[in-house]
Design a protein around this nucleic acid. Structure first.
Lengths: 183, 183
DNA sequence: GTCTATAAGCTGATAGAC
DNA sequence: GTCTATCAGCTTATAGAC
């Protein structure tokens, strides 16, 4: 892995764990074990790193959605794979929340120019879920149902982070899977 | 209103709109129109201001819950008053998210000592909602139902902030009110 | 490509006059 | 209680040697 990719990977993790603004160049440089000076050879501004991190997350998300589509041809099962992320990534979510939700919220407060790109991460999930609901025969309200599933995931992530309660997550997952079964 | 209260009120709003870390002493001082030096007569550290802001929010929340209880004796109607905050405070929520959810998420990433106090804001709503569900005869799962309503509100707030979509909020409110009617 | 050295600015925080 | 003046430290960012 080249230095640039290492920087993006380290920044991605640090932005998630500590937030974008709270993460300094020094912290990223230390994580990658390069000097702050060398850092600026690869990225001229902090905003450039953020753009690269978001682009990297977009690619990783696309890859994950592809792998879910490969894993099952059943749209309902694909949606369940999404619903269960809050369990699969339980420890990270309890510690740091949802990487997409917390980033979009922070960039909104900072009025950051990269905010639309962060929101586009949500749109990837939204459109993919919409396609699955369409395949289930819910053409007219596929998008509303996709948004409902996203609402669930964001609510669960925020409260799992606040209360650190694994059982709560399990209950909400069961509830939404029961709802999905009636669709 | 005394200077101290003005500082707390200005900090409260700025923490909400720009985030805790992104809000500088200079910005608060400017909003209250006092010098940075005078600032330190009232608060010795930034963390002290945060503690005062959270305490102020706790009091405001208690007052709001009291007023809701006064407004209606029907537990289901009281819960609806909570559910509809995402509509009532629609413009603020679309612009800055939920004041409780975004603060707890930020303090978690900062590993801030006041994090438990911020989470206690959630607990106020959780307990109050739980009391209403208990009054509706759901003794055994009143807390789970309270958490479900909180999950809704946090999910809606996060996505309303990301997409700025008023119709989405309306749809999710209708959906949860329909669920409540079956309880 | 990577380093050291350093600049310029903002941050939270203090001292002391009025 | 409010002010001005100031501090040390950290931040992003640059210059230039190797």
């Amino acid at each position: 892995m080249g230095t640039r990719e290492q920087i993006v990977a380290a920044a991605d993790r640090l932005f998630y764990e500590h937030g974008f603004e709270h993460t300094s160049f020094a912290a990223i440089a230390e994580a990658v074990r390069i000097s702050r000076g060398n850092f600026y050879y690869h990225f001229k501004t902090k905003d450039e790193i953020l753009a690269a991190v978001i682009a990297s997350r977009v690619e990783a998300t696309r890859e994950m959605l592809r792998s879910w589509a490969d894993e099952s041809g059943d749209p309902a099962e694909r949606i369940r794979l999404f619903i269960r992320i809050v369990v699969t990534n339980g420890p990270d979510i309890r510690a740091f929340g949802c990487p997409v939700g917390t980033l979009t919220a922070e960039l909104a407060k900072l009025r950051h120019p990269s905010r639309p790109e962060a929101t586009a991460l949500f749109t990837l999930f939204r459109d993919w879920l919409g396609e699955q609901f369409t395949a289930l025969g819910h053409e007219t309200d596929a998008d509303a149902m996709a948004m409902h599933v996203l609402t669930f995931s964001q609510g669960v992530a925020t409260l799992a982070n606040a209360f650190g309660d694994e059982d709560f997550v399990r209950r909400e997952v069961d509830r939404l899977e029961a709802w999905l079964a009636t669709c």
